[in-house]
Design a protein around this nucleic acid. Structure first.
Lengths: 137, 137
DNA sequence: TCCATGTTGAAAATCAATTGCTTTTTGGGG
DNA sequence: CCCCAAAAAGCAATTGATTTTCAACATGGA
């Protein structure tokens, strides 16, 4: 949370109730959360949904959260750890939507080859796995 | 086109102007097209956008087109070749949106490991690369 | 404490995609 | 070649996620 404060201050952004609440909610959830889910986790006098959308953009720009796309038209966010760029992938059950974090990543050498072959710079990737979880089989 | 006819007939679906036009447009475009792009490529008395949306669902279900998601909230489609499941990936320029087809794929062995480790069945993946193309650097 | 500026709430606006419903087409049968 | 039921298209309205507008409000440095 101190990280949040210093980073926000560094950009003359303010520490507000909604922002702190959002980070608190993300901190206690191990999986990517949709804005609506964050919204419904909001304690009591919850804030406006638009505020959550705005906050997520801010936090994403600051590199404090990472956006994930499971292809269902809903953006989900995860807190990014201290010394971590948040780059990782997921295995999602197409039946129940259970999400498992995946440690494996696309091989760097191959990515470099792809970049070189096409003369692209700054190449990254988005990768998510889909399947049927043990409970849904 | 003959494939289209036989496949459509086989499911008591009809061969209509809009469907033929859509496939014709996809055939002459080597890259994934958004529904709106297909719409604007429509000759003269173009059909309704809703018809394109409905047709894409049908063609996707029939395995004649493949849906791709570049993370910008717009679905794009590509024609699937005869003896091909259409599974491949793209390298997209984040500046000008140029798209290059990528032959490389996520290593099967690793995908199998991921599936096994988590006891998931029927695991597949969505993978797209992003970077800056030669012209935009 | 005061003030400039960043933020929020609330409602309206966007945008892609979907759906309801009426009118047209398509294609097998006569 | 014409008829008809079913499939498909046109068109308008709707949904859902996300964004924006704008007035009211809160934060933090002076």
């Amino acid at each position: 949370m101190s990280t949040l404060k210093s980073r926000l201050r560094g950009q003359s952004k303010r520490i507000t109730g909604p922002r702190a609440a959002i980070l608190e909610i993300l901190r206690k959830h191990p999986h990517p959360l949709a804005n609506k889910e964050i919204f419904s986790e909001m304690p009591a006098g919850h804030c406006d949904l638009a505020t959550i959308y705005r906050s997520m953009h801010l936090l994403e720009r600051m590199g404090m959260v990472k956006r994930f796309d499971f292809g269902d038209g809903v953006a989900r966010f995860e807190l990014v750890g201290e010394n971590d760029d948040g780059h990782h992938h997921h295995l999602v059950c197409i039946r129940c939507s259970e999400v498992v974090e995946v440690d494996e990543c696309f091989p760097e050498e191959i990515e470099r080859e792809i970049a070189a072959k096409n003369r692209f710079k700054g190449v990254t990737h988005k990768l998510e796995f889909f399947g049927i979880c043990p409970d849904c089989q």
